[in-house]
């Protein structure tokens, strides 16, 4: 009987051990969940304070347009090429795909509507915002993060110059201004690209391309809503990019992580907000 007792005893001990192990890992799980929750709340708080400071800082940018111009250059002009080329190709692909689908129904004349509606409502604001996050957003984060790492920001503070006003606010404002312009360029060039493929290459009637588009797209509902979307995206991407840079660990690793976070978080924010905005603007939800 003795070995039997000892094996049951052993089994009980192992069970108790395992139960403790499970409890321990559960405690560990809740601890890290709590940690993540608390730190994300703290970050949310810091970023809100940052946003408010930035928005008030914009007031001091207005009398000094030179600061804004410099940022419009590095944010807007330097994104021009990637936006226009991408817009052209997206428009051409839409022309090609749209033609293939619509010609099955004998409705090639609707190609203009299809290309323009998809660009103006969705692809223009969303794709250009994603490109903007990758091109300008990551550059902003890296720039601000490096400024922090090389003590430029605290150097300015010690010179009694508020870096939020001098460095952050002009970049933020430039991002909010540049984004709708870039999205408009993207959409317009995309429509021309669709025209190039659909009308010049595949033989859709030129008049039908434009007139169907004009008859079916509404200035208020389509164009204005698209512009509102791109302004919202510009606001959010600039905020994320600048905050991640400002909040980055002042080391090379910290800056590179912050840059990655900018691109990832911006992409999430753009796509999530796009759904919400679309539901509010076009949907009946």
């Amino acid at each position: 009987m003795a070995p039997f007792i000892s094996t049951t005893l052993l089994a009980i001990i192992i069970k108790i051990y395992l139960i403790f192990k499970i409890i321990d890992s559960m405690i560990h799980f809740f601890q890290s969940l709590g940690n993540i929750t608390l730190s994300s709340f703290a970050k949310l708080g810091r970023s809100s304070v940052f946003l408010i400071q930035t928005l008030t800082g914009i007031l001091s940018v207005i009398p000094r347009p030179a600061l804004l111009f410099k940022q419009l250059y590095s944010i807007g002009v330097l994104s021009f090429l990637i936006i226009t080329i991408s817009g052209l190709f997206v428009g051409m692909v839409l022309g090609l795909q749209g033609f293939n689908i619509l010609s099955d129904f004998g409705a090639e004349e609707a190609l203009g509507v299809m290309v323009a509606a998809s660009l103006v409502r969705e692809l223009g604001p969303v794709v250009s915002a994603l490109l903007f996050a990758g091109r300008a957003g990551s550059a902003l984060t890296a720039e601000i993060g490096l400024m922090k790492a090389t003590e430029q920001l605290s150097g300015m503070e010690m010179m009694a110059i508020d870096p939020i006003k001098r460095i952050i606010a002009p970049r933020f404002l430039a991002g909010v201004i540049a984004m709708p312009l870039l999205a408009a360029l993207f959409s317009s060039i995309g429509v021309l690209g669709g025209h190039m493929v659909g009308v010049s290459m595949l033989g859709v009637d030129d008049g039908a391309y434009w007139s169907q588009m004009q008859a079916n797209l509404d200035f208020q509902d389509d164009i204005i809503n698209g512009i509102i979307k791109s302004i919202v995206f510009g606001f959010v991407v600039s905020w994320i990019a600048l905050f991640e840079g400002y909040d980055a660990m002042p080391t090379s690793e910290g800056v590179s992580r912050a840059t990655t976070r900018t691109v990832v978080n911006s992409a999430f924010a753009i796509l999530g907000l796009d759904f919400i905005l679309t539901a509010l603007m076009f949907g009946d939800i």
């Binding site: 103006v120 429509v191 389509d222 164009i223």
Partner: peptide, 15 residues
């Protein structure tokens, strides 16, 4: 260019 594109959208795309 950006403003021209906005005008293009207003006039040519949505009439």
């Amino acid at each position: 260019f950006g403003i021209a594109a906005l005008f293009f959208m207003a006039m040519q795309i949505s009439n």
